[in-house]
């Protein structure tokens, strides 16, 4: 297993990454060859035929059919090879194996959520078993995002109101970066996640525990966990610094002035409303960019989040 990567490519961790890398390096060495040829030719000519004194009449050679056909046909053959090679791998990237585990991916400003066939849901962390093909059925709730895992050499746009499909099969356990590659606004560069590849056994255990239910936690701790797992931190800090949204610190029990004018008391009702219908009352100085969590968070989770926010006193 390649863990260091090469000068250009990060370590490849999927069944198809090797194929992509070999085509990459084929083109790379071919390019190096032509680049050296052209640059060396330039340097040699510039030196050898540099102007000494006055420029006299020079050779009138205007073309050479053999030469011109050669430098048309050879590159043509090369690029056709590359085309076929690239297309074959591309099809393998797109045709999903029949036995793949289907996970639903939802992109949203600015986090990823994953729905597993067993009913579990996670945010910004995709947990998958190693050596198993994983099919991703993806859609977006707002704008176009793009699901990009460099280590797997995979990328697919995630479109609103439409499904796109891709798949991968990881070959090594570990944590891999997941990035959004299609510009999606203010939090684009914060729309990061991890793909956590674990062994079959660990995956089964993890599903068993039922992630996201808060079993055995008090509401405040569960809220703190949700704050992380549901990516609230992308926009709301807990240390008082304003971000894309207001900080959670000390917000409970205060009065907040509203963008439309007037003010509101920050109580349980307001917090619940802000989670479910974020555009209803925007705090002055912020943009109406928060997505609704209707259907994303369960009642118990909302209660836990409110409990957590209440606990963050100044």
């Amino acid at each position: 297993m390649d863990t260091t990567g090469t000068l250009f490519m990060p370590p490849g961790q999927s069944t198809l990454s090797g194929e992509v890398d070999s085509l990459f390096y084929f083109i790379f060495y071919m390019s190096v060859f032509f680049f050296v040829l052209i640059v060396a030719g330039t340097i040699i000519f510039v030196y050898r035929y540099r102007r000494r004194g006055k420029a006299g009449l020079t050779s009138g050679v205007s073309h050479n059919t053999t030469l011109e056909v050669t430098w048309t046909v050879i590159p043509l053959i090369l690029v056709l090879i590359i085309f076929v090679w690239g297309f074959k791998t591309y099809m393998r990237m797109n045709v999903v194996p029949k036995d793949a585990i289907e996970i639903k991916v939802t992109g949203q400003k600015w986090f990823w959520s994953f729905d597993y066939p067993e009913g579990a849901t996670t945010v910004n962390e995709l947990v998958v078993p190693v050596d198993k093909p994983i099919k991703l059925l993806m859609s977006s709730k707002d704008v176009i995002h793009s699901f990009f895992v460099p280590a797997f050499r995979m990328k697919m746009d995630v479109l609103p109101n439409r499904y796109t499909i891709t798949w991968f099969e990881a070959i090594g356990a570990g944590n891999y970066d997941l990035l959004c590659a299609e510009y999606c606004g203010k939090g684009h560069s914060e729309m990061l996640g991890k793909v956590k590849v674990v062994s079959d056994r660990e995956y089964a255990e993890w599903l068993e525990k039922g992630p996201g239910t808060g079993e055995g936690l008090n509401p405040v701790d569960f809220g703190a966990q949700l704050y992380k797992s549901k990516a609230c931190f992308t926009c709301h800090s807990v240390d008082g610094t304003p971000n894309i949204g207001p900080s959670f610190k000390g917000v409970y029990g205060h009065k907040a002035s509203l963008e439309k004018g007037g003010e509101t008391a920050v109580d349980e009702n307001y917090l619940r409303e802000s989670i479910l219908d974020p555009q209803a009352k925007i705090v002055a100085g912020y943009q109406p960019v928060m997505p609704t969590y209707q259907g994303v968070l369960k009642d118990k989770q909302i209660d836990a989040l409110i409990a957590y926010i209440k606990s963050l006193k100044e």
Binding site: V20, I27, W85, G86, P150, R153, M154
Partner: peptide
């Protein structure tokens, strides 16, 4: 540009 024209490499 050749890298980017090749389908599989372009995906990455």
């Amino acid at each position: 540009g050749i890298f980017l024209g090749a389908l599989s490499v372009d995906v990455h």
